[in-house]
Nucleic acid binder design. Structure first.
Length: 569
DNA sequence: GCCGTTTTCGGCCCGACTGTTTTCAGTCG
């Protein structure tokens, strides 16, 4: 079992214990252990062997034993027992906003509710609202929550979808008749959520024959919906994957069509038709002449068009336009937005800094939570002084990366930042984010941001809408008003690269740029493993058409500091 | 369940809002 699966299982154990009414600190211990496991950048088997797992904070004998069992055998006695004791529907209900374990337990005991459909029925027929401390509004909120959950369950977060596809692609690539496998669809276009998992395989035998052979593999549960070149495969309990098979001479045409979007393809097809081509099937034809397209560039070229990077294939308007210079990971010189063990991260300043150095960054901005974020171990003034001393000491030792002193300050309800100015003045830069009071009206929320922007110490606005993909809508806020104010004030706005956020949305990046806003890529890393988030931030910037000149992290440390200081003078 | 020590138990993450009550339990970040 890999690290992610182990972390998921630990979280699930925590949920079961919680639902059983266990001590909350015991529950929290399992949740914390899941976060610790996520923070490991080496496979857990390695961490078990070299003793580093045992040494890790939050991993005691009981949890260690379960992790070892999971890694070695893929299952856990404790987990299996819990799974039999607690109905799985109750765990699903924990994802409904407004429903916590206490209420779920009450529903279970009082009404015998064990599944989402049963919950929905009780919310509709009035039984739920009649319970003590429930009511009509709660029933309403739960129905909305169920609807949201249903919708979300059809979708995958980008990083989950990518991991699924990569694993299956690797397995398929080992097949003797498959020479290459490419992720396609939304995963390749780097959308923030993904509906369909699509792979393109290049094979040297007819698709039907290949599908038959794949169907005989023990890891493949099901091959369905077969037409002449596509089938839906199910590997074990994983979500279904659409596999499209092509000979090498049509790879370009097939990959373009498998990648989409529908709007891009529609425009591309009509462009082809106007020029006497036909792109409807699995290949490109010019009249009755077959046009080989061994890669995508050949296809676009045949149609007299520049190749379009997959991230930009959305509205169709990108066709025929020159491709703008797009951001690449290698352009980034600075790493921004990370949490250390001073607040809710799992690694030290030095561990994060050295990992960033090894990943090729020149500088890193440390941004732990400010004091109002008590739930996340927000920093008291004493903590700040200790961290600043630690950073000074680290920088004095010349480790080959510069550490900057930052903070992720809460934006309080009235728009004030979370420390007095004399403390704010001592940071090299500031990220400021909203972490509470989400349900102000749009006008009040917007005013809150505008007031924060007035502070000369603010450098970057963090995760501007507060959305959590597939679990929480962003709060109501006038983004364009914020763009305008930030652009004028010289305040940057973050693309939060946490794959659960990806906030700003790529669809609004063009408007931010037009308003003169600098964009920063904020990893929101809570461990060394979180450094990998940056890849998602880069993808979102590219989808929004942004290049290195638009991105604050592409500056040298000196230029970044000058950007922050310019506001204070 | 884990941690840390003035070690083998006591403390661990807390403050504010929401919908329900009519004083507060439950949820959230």
């Amino acid at each position: 079992m890999d690290n992610t699966a182990v972390a998921d299982t630990l979280d699930r154990i925590a949920a079961y214990l919680d639902l059983k009414g266990e001590n909350t600190f015991r529950v929290r211990a399992w949740r914390n252990a899941a976060r610790t496991v996520e923070g490991f950048t080496v496979p857990l088997a390695t961490a078990i062997a070299d003793g580093s797992l045992e040494q890790a904070k939050g991993i005691g004998p009981a949890i260690l034993q379960v992790i070892v069992e999971l890694v070695e055998t893929g299952r856990s006695e404790m987990f299996e027992t819990l799974r039999e004791e607690v109905p799985s529907g109750l765990v699903e209900m924990m994802a409904i906003s407004g429903l916590g374990v206490a209420k779920i337990r009450q529903l279970h005991t009082a009404l015998g509710i064990e599944t989402l459909p049963e919950l929905e029925e009780a919310a509709r027929d009035g039984r739920l609202a009649a319970l003590p401390r429930f009511g009509a509004r709660t029933a309403e909120a739960i129905l909305k929550g169920i609807a949201f959950l249903r919708q979300s369950s059809q979708l995958h977060l980008a990083h989950h979808a990518r991991d699924e596809l990569n694993e299956i692609a690797a397995a398929l690539a080992a097949h003797p008749h498959i020479s290459a496998v490419y992720p396609a669809g939304e995963v390749r276009r780097r959308t923030e959520v993904v509906r369909d998992l699509t792979l393109v395989a290049v094979a040297d035998i007819p698709p039907a024959e290949l599908f038959r052979m794949l169907g005989d593999l023990p890891s493949v549960n099901e091959v369905t919906g077969t037409d002449e070149r596509r089938a839906t495969l199910r590997f074990g309990s994983r979500p279904p994957v659409q596999l499209i098979v092509t000979p090498p001479q049509n790879l370009g045409a097939v990959l373009v069509q498998a990648t989409g979007s529908a709007e891009h393809l529609e425009r591309l097809t009509s462009h082809a038709t106007e020029r006497g081509f036909n792109l409807a099937g699995a290949a490109l034809w010019q009249g009755s002449r077959f046009v080989p397209t061994p890669d995508e560039a050949t296809l676009y070229q045949a149609l007299g068009l520049p190749w379009v990077p997959p991230e930009l294939r959305e509205t169709g308007e990108e066709i025929g336009r020159p491709v703008p210079p797009l951001l690449e990971r290698s352009h980034l010189r600075g790493f921004l937005h990370c949490h250390t063990s001073y607040s809710d991260g799992t690694n030290t300043v030095a561990q994060l800094a050295l990992a960033c150095r090894d990943a090729g960054y020149e500088w890193i901005g440390i941004t732990d939570h400010s004091r109002a974020a008590a739930y996340a171990g927000g920093m008291q003034p004493d903590d700040l002084r200790r961290q600043w001393d630690e950073i000074d000491e680290f920088n004095a030792a010349n480790h080959g990366i510069l550490v900057l002193k930052g903070i992720e300050s809460d934006i309080l309800a009235d728009g004030a930042l979370d420390y007095p100015d004399d403390i704010l003045a001592q940071f090299d830069f500031l990220i400021a984010s909203v972490h509470s009071r989400f349900n102000l009206g749009e006008a009040e929320m917007t005013a809150r941001f505008l007031r924060a922007i007035e502070s000369p110490y603010l450098t970057i606005i963090g995760h501007p809408t507060g959305r959590l993909l597939l679990s929480r809508e962003g709060y109501a806020v006038d983004l364009d008003a914020i763009f305008e104010a930030a652009g004028k004030a010289g305040v940057a706005i973050e693309i939060n690269a946490d794959p659960y956020r990806l906030d700003l949305d790529w669809r609004v990046l063009g408007r931010a740029r037009e308003a003169g806003v600098m964009i920063s890529i904020g990893a929101d890393a809570h461990s060394v493993a979180g450094l990998a988030n940056v890849d998602f931030g880069v993808a979102i910037a590219r989808k929004g058409g942004l290049g290195p000149d638009d991105i604050l992290n592409c500056r040298s440390a000196g230029d970044f500091l000058a950007f922050a200081r310019a506001r204070r003078e």
